[in-house]
């Protein structure tokens, strides 16, 4: 994968850590997912048909998830953006530190160093979004960002991943996000907001 594209994907992930509105975050992650699929298509020239199918599945995943999350956002309007417990700048610093630390810990593993670093960084950034953001929809986006990270490695590998794994992986992500959307809507119905800060009933 082109190094510039890999870092653009990482930048889109980092932007999701700090962006305030859910709509903007959905646009960023959808753009990231589609860009990843298009970048995979660009690599498909010398590869087999299975790789093209997998690339198409990545684009489709981006479109489907973006549409699903946009649709649920319209159904579960928040009067104000969910208040975050941690300021945006601190979230950004924490996500960057986590990403750099993770990338430093994982050695080179058979793909271009930039792609490997971007893979690990995006998985870390996705985890950071889940842990640092309070909106349920944003946490669901964090899952997609992390899965996009793994997809970078899968598409950058010389032979690609087996098609069964690639398609199964895309299908699993779609199902997981569909379930997340269903639970998010029920949380919104129950609490009047998708703020996970309100989910504090279970403590020991």
């Amino acid at each position: 994968m082109n190094g510039g594209v890999a870092w653009i994907l990482v930048a889109l992930g980092l932007a999701t850590v700090i962006v305030r509105r859910r709509s903007a975050a959905i646009v960023l992650v959808t753009a990231q997912s589609i860009a990843l699929g298009v970048a995979a298509f660009a690599l498909a020239g010398g590869r087999d048909a299975e790789f093209k199918v997998a690339s198409a599945a990545l684009v489709l995943k981006g479109v489907v998830l973006g549409a699903a999350l946009g649709w649920t956002m319209l159904r579960t309007r928040e009067p104000l953006p969910v208040a975050e417990g941690i300021p945006a700048a601190v979230r950004l610093i924490m996500a960057v530190v986590l990403a750099l630390g993770a990338a430093a810990l994982v050695p080179s593993f058979g793909i271009a160093a930039t792609d490997g670093d971007a893979t690990v960084a995006l998985v870390a950034i996705g985890a950071a979004i889940v842990l640092l953001r309070r909106s349920t929809l944003l946490q669901a986006l964090g899952l997609i960002v992390a899965e996009n990270g793994v997809a970078i490695a899968a598409t950058s590998a010389h032979r690609g991943l087996p098609i069964v794994i690639e398609l199964g992986f895309v299908f699993d992500v779609i199902v997981i996000v569909a379930v997340a959307v269903a639970v998010h809507e029920r949380i919104h119905d129950e609490f009047g907001s998708g703020d996970t800060g309100l989910l504090r009933g279970l403590r020991d």
């Binding site: 998985v123 899952l143 379930v179």
Partner: peptide
Amino acid sequence: ALEAGWKYLVLTTVGLTVALLGIVI
């Protein structure tokens, strides 16, 4: 139950993404 279901969904999915990264590596 909604809180438990949500935590279960997001935390285990993040974990399994890390496991997938290991498999891909």
